[in-house]
Design a protein around this nucleic acid. Sequence first.
DNA 1: GGAATTGTTGCAATCGGTTGCAGCATTGCT
DNA 2: AGCAATGCTGCAACCGATTGCAACAATTCC
Lengths: 333, 333
Amino acid sequence: MNLEEVAKRAKVSTATVSRVLNNIDVVKNSTRSRVIKAVEELKYHPNLHARTLAGGKSKTLGMIVSNMENPFFFDVFKALEADAIAHGYEVVIANTDYSAEHLVDSVRLMIGRRVAGLAAIVSEMNPRLIDELADSKIPVVFYDVGTARRNISNIRVNYQRGIEKVVDYLHDLGHRRMAFVSHHAALGPINVRERSFVETVSRHAPGAEWKTAVDADGPEGGRQAVREILSSGFRPTAIICVNDFMALGVLRELREQGLRVPRDVSVTGFDNITLSEFCYPALTTVHIPRERIGHIAYETLLPEDGKSPFASRDIQIDPDFVLRESTGPARKA
Amino acid sequence: MNLEEVAKRAKVSTATVSRVLNNIDVVKNSTRSRVIKAVEELKYHPNLHARTLAGGKSKTLGMIVSNMENPFFFDVFKALEADAIAHGYEVVIANTDYSAEHLVDSVRLMIGRRVAGLAAIVSEMNPRLIDELADSKIPVVFYDVGTARRNISNIRVNYQRGIEKVVDYLHDLGHRRMAFVSHHAALGPINVRERSFVETVSRHAPGAEWKTAVDADGPEGGRQAVREILSSGFRPTAIICVNDFMALGVLRELREQGLRVPRDVSVTGFDNITLSEFCYPALTTVHIPRERIGHIAYETLLPEDGKSPFASRDIQIDPDFVLRESTGPARKA
DNA sequence: GGAATTGTTGCAATCGGTTGCAGCATTGCT
DNA sequence: AGCAATGCTGCAACCGATTGCAACAATTCC
């Protein structure tokens, strides 16, 4: 079922059918309706591959994320997609599950698909792979990885500042034994958060003891991390989590172990995902404007007409501290 | 950057390059390595559209879901994707947000993309649209909507049975005033769940009072639904939620209103998503084997070699009751 | 009424690959 | 050495669209 069959049935050329389908308004009304009739009768659906191949331009955006299960990524996606759809684009997403291998495959796939733009919201990326993207000429926007270049823009959040706000706040409440729970990604912003934690503690909370634990991203990972910390004998009065998603599991495990939050232990998250407000107790966290990030990503990849087609940008975002119920004064020993 | 340039550089024809790229092992080793060298030097990435167009077959599966934000759908996706990737396929997903319009667009897009198979995990679908899919000849598997036909398979869960188990259990605990919280989808399985609720209450819990409330799928919707119920003056001793995702919001709002779960009110979910175990209190719910559904979907669309290419199937799944901490005896008035 | 416009439609090249078939180069066999 | 079998590679048609250009048709204008 292709253009030709439709053309035959409507007794016109494929060129005319194509024009009708693309709303090019030079076609006579009577012809147009004949074509439309044929299209419907044959239940014809244009072949997207042929279309983008012939047209030379793709109407799809790509998005690569580390862990779609974590609502953080989904929220960014949702905003990006809304903008895309509003402008007649679609967005295909790829989930790497923090695997470098999957990431390579996903990037190659996106290039192969000749996407009109690519948003990579991943915590790390091999420099060689970044080069590959740079050479592809595809407009790219990274979230917190790599550096801006000709065809690559960058959105970054000041994690350092976010963690400082958290540590400062806890230190003021008297906390002197803290734990940091994070996940596997060895490089990139995650490590930035961990490093920030260590540095900030030694600078803003001198003399405090601390410990870090690492497990998979997600509630289950958070739970495991807490088990690891507690079974080591360390008894923190505050647990700082690399993100809210893991914090959910931390809360759960503390409850299981009979520790009250925040009376016995304070817990903080990061990101301010919707769930952080629905868990118990509601999480004190740091707000990352995910929706804004999604919109910026879109606007960066596909600027409104009038502006230059694609300009490499470097955008900084300063996160805000969000106080809820999972934190309180440190318990006296 | 295309095959021809690579061919020129390697001093061979495009046919040979194509053979090398597709691992067709008739190419002489020395030639092969010359081609590979050229591919790498030029950082060539084959055009996916040209490839599927010329090859006639697509290596991608499509999946359409109602609400990717709800972990239920993500879990199904994850299992499906794992199988797909293991067999060299990729899967592109479309999110309809419960919008019939988006659904139509998504289906058309998938057909246009000539996917090798399509999994539609949505709660409702216009019969005309189903026909469109049927005519497309694309292997399709529905989850709980439509009926099996030539190229359409069906996986369905016995909701009726699931709800019965919940209502029976609550009735045995003495609950006589129940509320049902569900979301917007007007037709399909959601309504099945609601209808099941009403029928089951009148059959298994004769004389019980009940009320239903509807809002958006998700924690926020659950919260709103509870507000609606309580502000109407109705004071249920048990709230049955159409799914766990909404139940999260129900728990939160009850807490806010000073009602203890399960002492004052019992709450149940449906699906048994991971979060149902991490919220407080952990949810009593009904387990839907999402992972299994994903695997079945894959296996149905792309049967292992040896079996017939695609056979229309109709699969039934019986859900299990999962007892946790959010339910208890009805409070005496 | 005939020339100049303007409106509609078709021809055919093109996008970037895949693949059946033919042909040249080797190698094997007698 | 001569012929057949086999290995490797290239030619060219094809996949299903888009689009510049030419051609024909319908109007408009003087």
